[in-house]
Amino acid sequence: MDFLNGLVALANFVLIPAIAYGSQLALGALGVTLIYGILRFSNFAHGDTMAVGTMFAVLTTWGLQAMGVSLGPFPTALLAIPFGILGATALVLLTDRYVYKFYRAQKAKPVILVIVSMGVMFIYNGLTRIIIGPDDYRFADGERFVISARTFRDMTGLEEGLALRTTQVITVVTAVVVVAALFWFLNKTRTGKSMRAFSDNEDLALLSGINPERVVLVTWLIVASLATVAGVLYGLDKSFKAFTYFQLLLPIFAAAIVGGLGNPLGAIAGGFVIAFSEVGITYAWKKVLTYFMPPALEPDGLVQILSTEYKFAVSFVILVIVLLFRPTGLFRGKSL
């Protein structure tokens, strides 16, 4: 019984939150890795692109709620995601047309584009704060739990409860669907293959008649969609705040680099590696450990390796360790 209780506690406090968070990071890291693979720079504005997409989705959600539209047990925000994607795509494409395109024509070095993306980051950040404001917004509605801790205890008779929030289930399901669709697109469709070809060898792609501008356009479309989905899922799970999204940049970059920049599989693996280490290292293990250990060995303290405030430190340390031993990341990066 203790063993089962321990497992349930582990699932409840570590596995489920880490899987949900990992999915969100993976979606974010996929966007970063696509830009790195195709446009060949790390996009500092990615966190804020997520914020912009989510902002449009939040505004739409409020509109829908005001009109009395609802999805029943599901959060209304799911209906708003397409609008969020639309908004983010529009902004990103405008940015590409009026900002990035010029530098492509100049054959600018990637590091110049990194600096450009800093400017874009400032603008997106300002826009988000001007339009929706800098505060914390919650926009999740519908049924809060698929299984609440109490129901689970009643059902199983265990001491520990297992709470499964609707948003967590939605996060994982959406992430799986989106990732599957992305991989199908990249590996099976002509456009997807042309993106991989462009990432692998730009000159040869050109000689094969692949239109670079089209590849870039499709990339931005996908990135804006991924960013919005990741942002909305994160916001549903936690809340929406412009500054938090900007700060997500570090774990997302870390995930993309740990996995191997430019490699989509790596981005996903990296997202989960970072999420599991963050949750695992900042979780107080006392509760779980008491179930597994004989009473004599029960720990006194909380068995929390680091306080939750240090979660950024964790992503960073994992990153350094991986880079020290595998400089190209878990999966060999560079091209899609």
């Binding site: 790195y36 693979g37 060949r40 720079f41 790390s42 530098y103 100049q106 054959k107 600018a108 070095k109 990637p110 590091v111 110049i112 990194v114 462009f198 990432s199 692998d200 060898n201 730009e202 000159d203 050109l206 000689l207 670079p212 970059f253 680099i257 920049l261 430019g262 560079k334 091209s335």
Partner: peptide
């Protein structure tokens, strides 16, 4: 001569990806 092509010798792979870059 093109200031946009001056990367000041930066070789930071966490932000830039020279792999497969066009030279044509």
């Amino acid at each position: 001569d093109n200031p946009y092509q001056d990367d000041r010798g930066n070789k930071d792979r966490s932000i830039t990806n020279p792999h497969g870059q066009g030279t044509l």
